[in-house]
Measured scan of single mutants.
Amino acid sequence: MPVRRGHVAPQNTFLDTIIRKFEGQSRKFIIANARVENCAVIYCNDGFCELCGYSRAEVMQRPCTCDFLHGPRTQRRAAAQIAQALLGAEERKVEIAFYRKDGSCFLCLVDVVPVKNEDGAVIMFILNFEVVMEKDMVGSPAHDTNHRGPPTSWLAPGRAKTFRLKLPALLALTARESSVRSGGAGGAGAPGAVVVDVDLTPAAPSSESLALDEVTAMDNHVAGLGPAEERRALVGPGSPPRSAPGQLPSPRAHSLNPDASGSSCSLARTRSRESCASVRRASSADDIEAMRAGVLPPPPRHASTGAMHPLRSGLLNSTSDSDLVRYRTISKIPQITLNFVDLKGDPFLASPTSDREIIAPKIKERTHNVTEKVTQVLSLGADVLPEYKLQAPRIHRWTILHYSPFKAVWDWLILLLVIYTAVFTPYSAAFLLKETEEGPPATECGYACQPLAVVDLIVDIMFIVDILINFRTTYVNANEEVVSHPGRIAVHYFKGWFLIDMVAAIPFDLLI
């Protein structure tokens, strides 16, 4: 008679799926529990143990900040960024110097990925580790590398530091407007667009060049630039800015003055950032001319202004700041037409079709709590990747769950009947059967004279019903998954307890 339990259901295979997918890609990662103190490590794979030199037993239950890997060259700011990422709910990448158990130093890129439950609360953290440099290539500990984003994938490793954006290309926007319009339909740009040429040739750093990471940081200074100062900065030398009595002219307006920039070969870094931020506020060169004239017309309804409409929906549905990093990277690809469009465009503009998908598509409701890094690593669709929660398995109709209350009560009843059979069957065979043979035949009273025979008949009927119930009862397979398919249940029961239950259900007393 089957006594099969499996009270692990309803099970959740999400954690096993993450481990299996990460292991298949030869990654070095740990999984931490966000619900406990210090976000203790609950799993670390073999790749991480080989990377740091510690065994799994030495890593388990330690804080996922990996303070046991810190050393003299470990930056405090990087460690603080990892700790801050564990307090938030967004994906974050941090470069930090770690030390192995043998004392060797290596520069590592740590990717902190939160995993949320159905309520939107962070319950786990996945920390992925990628070695960037070994100890002989690690720089000085005073050099802070965590304020910069990861290198873009479309640049060669040897040319990542030679990417320079020439400031004269930004200063000569109005001069290039006529050349853009003359391109017409034969050019790649839309009317009114501004073409910015980027020099990728390796050259020595000069005062006129600005690194790509500095251009990325310009967006942080746009908020500090007032509207009046932006307007004066875009007017140009024809209309000098008016300053109040006793007030000095704005240095932001002076930063885009061609006369002032041409007199000296070098520009201050602050002026460069502010000038680029001011130019980015204009949607095209037409807006710059309109600002000089004193009238700013409404933005025209053409394809170039609607190019950012799908980007707005993608940004609203993005799951991490990696989408913004990807957008900034692609927006700086050289030799393309940049349409400086305000994100607050007309909502009635139709979304044009684009061959290049900048932001990841909208994630469906079932995966809105899973970050983009987890979705990318697992390579699963929205119909396959579940949320991290207890999910009731989908069972067929008329199927009994093996952990249901009805099955528990039924098993206790069958257990009592088995005990009765084990006690009274030998007793009936030894004593009652002998008395029946010696006594007179009682054929007239039937079952009324033999109450134990009636009980034995009921017990046999219950055993037959138990066999039928076992054909529709779920079970737990070797992978700790609840199986509810009727065919698989029948095959599993035939290979197991079916023969024993059938022999126990045969009414031998009635056959004798």
Rank of each mutant, 00 (worst) to 15 (best):
P2R: 05
V8C: 08
A9F: 14
P10N: 12
T13C: 13
F14L: 07
L15I: 15
I19W: 01
R20M: 07
K21A: 07
K21H: 11
S26E: 10
S26M: 07
F29S: 01
F29M: 01
A32F: 01
A32S: 06
A32P: 01
A34C: 06
E37C: 05
C44A: 14
G47P: 01
C49G: 04
E50Y: 08
V59R: 01
Q61N: 09
Q61R: 13
T65K: 03
C66P: 01
L69R: 01
G71W: 01
G71E: 01
P72Y: 01
T74N: 01
A79R: 10
I82D: 01
A85W: 01
A85V: 01
E90Q: 11
R92I: 12
K93A: 13
V94H: 03
V94R: 01
A97L: 14
F98E: 01
K101N: 01
D102L: 01
G103Y: 05
S104R: 07
C105Y: 13
C105Q: 15
V112M: 06
V113H: 13
P114Q: 01
P114F: 01
V115F: 13
K116P: 12
E118T: 13
A121I: 07
A121T: 09
N128T: 08
N128R: 06
E130G: 11
V132N: 14
M137E: 13
V138A: 15
S140W: 14
S140D: 06
A142C: 15
D144T: 15
T145G: 08
H147Q: 03
P150T: 13
T152P: 11
S153E: 07
S153K: 14
W154N: 11
A156C: 06
A156H: 12
A160W: 15
K161C: 05
T162Y: 06
T162V: 07
F163T: 15
F163A: 15
L167Q: 15
L167F: 15
L170R: 11
L170I: 11
T174Q: 14
R176W: 03
S178G: 08
R181W: 05
R181S: 08
G186Y: 11
G186A: 12
G187A: 15
V198H: 04
D199A: 04
P202T: 06
S206H: 15
E208Q: 09
S209D: 10
L210Y: 03
L212E: 06
L212D: 14
V215Y: 12
A217V: 07
M218G: 10
N220A: 12
N220E: 12
H221T: 10
G224L: 14
P227V: 09
P227K: 11
P237G: 13
P237K: 14
S239Q: 14
S239E: 10
P241N: 15
S243E: 15
P245C: 07
Q247S: 15
S250H: 03
S250I: 11
A253D: 06
L256H: 13
D259G: 07
S261D: 12
S264G: 14
R269K: 08
T270N: 14
R271N: 13
S272D: 06
E274H: 05
R281Y: 15
A282V: 05
I288V: 07
M291H: 15
A293G: 10
V295H: 08
L296E: 14
L296A: 11
P298F: 08
P300K: 07
R301F: 01
R301V: 14
H302I: 09
A303R: 06
M308A: 11
M308E: 14
L311Q: 05
R312M: 05
S313N: 10
G314C: 10
L315V: 14
S318I: 07
S318T: 14
S320K: 09
S320L: 07
S320E: 07
D321T: 05
D323Y: 05
I330M: 14
P334S: 09
P334V: 01
Q335M: 11
T337K: 14
N339I: 01
K344V: 10
K344L: 09
P347K: 10
P347A: 11
F348R: 14
L349M: 14
L349Y: 07
L349R: 12
A350Y: 01
P352R: 09
P352A: 12
R356C: 12
E357L: 05
E357H: 15
I358E: 07
P361Y: 01
I363R: 14
I363N: 03
K364R: 14
R366Q: 06
H368F: 11
K373C: 07
V374S: 01
Q376F: 02
V377I: 09
L380S: 04
A382E: 15
P386V: 01
